[in-house]
Design a protein around this nucleic acid. Structure first.
Lengths: 122, 122
DNA sequence: TCAAGCATGTTACAAATAGTAAGTATGAGT
DNA sequence: ACTCATACTTACTATTTGTAACATGCTTGA
């Protein structure tokens, strides 16, 4: 038996569990990670950009999440030796590829979670 | 000032923060929620289906996450008065609409997080 | 020279969330 | 009466997150 788990015995049904998906969704979905990635896709490159762009996030968590994303190869950290020293965070190709995921979530959110929509209810 | 935050002053740049997106990503990305939704899209309808499909999840968390998803209008809970009593969980239209998000994450995961890929490295 | 400030974190500790294991409820079967 | 099954709930522990204060290296102003 593989690492996949079947729910039904319908051969057209995809496996109900997939480790790569699990890893990906828990990475992107970990608290604050999704919003940090979105902020970076939309232009944030510095620690202070992220801090300013996201209400409620603490420095400690920005630091922690950026380290995780760096370890996963989603962002790269570059120290710019100016004064005061600056650090640039950039998305890798892997990180930029998350644009599709962010877009899908944003589209769903707009349709189903928008504050008030006149032409859609219940 | 609105609830959106701008990173740059480029008028074509989208806001770096959007509350609807934030809500959506934290809902879907909360621990186990993403895998539960995927399992349901792939056919899981019962508590025990989810339990069996997802390695490592505890009953307590299945229960908690399903309550949250129900409160968000993503799943509906139906009690079937058989013996022993059964409970059916189904995705709502809002929940089914998450199929696109799940597909986007799965596609990214396949490309960038697959266990080993011969034609892709570093 | 001394203090103050900025950018980017780190540390210490409290609060919230998640994990584990055992217990509950109802009715059927034996 | 006792056990089984499903679908939870409760009690307790471990891990993660939040908050606030401190550290570093360099600059500017008094």
């Amino acid at each position: 038996m593989s690492t996949m788990t079947q729910i039904s015995d319908d051969p057209t049904a995809a496996p109900a569990f997939c480790p790569a998906y699990h890893h990906a969704i828990e990475l992107i979905g970990r608290r604050w990670s999704g919003v940090i990635i979105r902020a970076m896709i939309h232009g944030a490159t510095r620690f202070s950009d992220i801090s300013a762009a996201i209400p409620g996030i603490s420095d400690r968590l920005i630091s922690e999440r950026l380290k995780e994303l760096e370890a996963e190869g989603v962002v790269v950290r570059t120290v710019v030796p100016s004064t005061p020293v600056r650090v640039d965070y950039a998305l890798t190709e892997k990180g930029r590829a998350l644009g599709d995921v962010v877009a899908a979530v944003a589209a769903w959110a707009e349709t189903w979670c928008a504050p008030v929509a006149a032409d859609r209810d219940a």
